[in-house]
Write a protein that binds this DNA or RNA. Structure first.
Length: 200
DNA sequence: AGCACGATTAACT
DNA sequence: GTTAATCGTGCTC
């Protein structure tokens, strides 16, 4: 059962934490599934957040963030990488959650091929690694993750104990001014903790 | 029109 | 720990 629009309509940081443990699923053209459990997320909230792409106002690149919640915001960076975000809050307010890492669960062999034979341990432990593993690019920008026929969506996964969530500063914001640079809007759950719950 | 740099990764030393 | 790869975007002139 796919997570519905209401799940994404809440405050971004709440959604960022709630996404930990959820299943990110990619259905490929040939019907094969690739899936993983989300283990790290990051919140980007509005035009006042100087670490958020929305700080520059609405542009061709970041327009998806202004759209309805539950849609994907995929962008290209560093001249070679695609990063996946999930749009949050109400339509018209630019905010999103960056999916930074997942724990591979299904379609691992397919992921390994796309990741050029890398060991499972480092298949999807970075924001650009997971888009590589799931074959996500700009074609997914603006896709409705709540639609019944989208080839990318989210599902319930394993329950996560809120006390086990670790908050840290967001990654890679080098020339972003304080307090945005150090504010702890990066959330992570230990993969060991998730694996433990998987066995239940 | 030109330019600095990025919500990164991989391959080095 | 350091650095090259690689190019679209947004900012400055």
């Amino acid at each position: 059962m796919r997570l519905n629009r209401d799940f994404f309509s809440h405050p971004t940081l709440d959604v960022a934490k709630a996404l930990l443990g959820k299943r990110l699923v990619r259905v490929e053209e040939d019907g094969v599934l690739s899936a993983g459990l989300i283990v790290e997320t990051e919140g980007y909230v509005g035009t006042d957040d100087m670490g958020c792409h929305a700080r520059a106002g609405r542009t061709k690149r970041n327009r998806s963030m202004w759209g309805a919640p539950g849609h994907a915001y995929v962008y290209f960076t560093y001249g070679m990488h695609y990063l996946l975000n999930v749009v949050t809050e109400m339509e018209g307010f630019p905010a999103a959650v960056l999916i930074r890492a997942i724990l591979p669960i299904e379609g691992v062999e397919r992921m390994r091929v796309r990741r050029r034979g890398k060991p499972e341990r480092i298949l999807t432990d970075g924001p650009a690694k997971l888009t590589q593993a799931l074959a996500l690019d700009l074609a997914f920008d603006g896709v409705d993750l709540c639609s019944v026929d989208s080839t990318l969506f989210l599902e319930e996964g394993v329950s996560v104990d809120p006390d086990k969530i670790v908050a840290k500063p967001r990654v890679g914001l080098f020339s972003v001014p304080e307090p945005w640079k150090s504010i702890e809007w990066n959330y992570r759950i230990q993969t060991a903790e998730l694996k433990l719950r998987l066995d239940d």
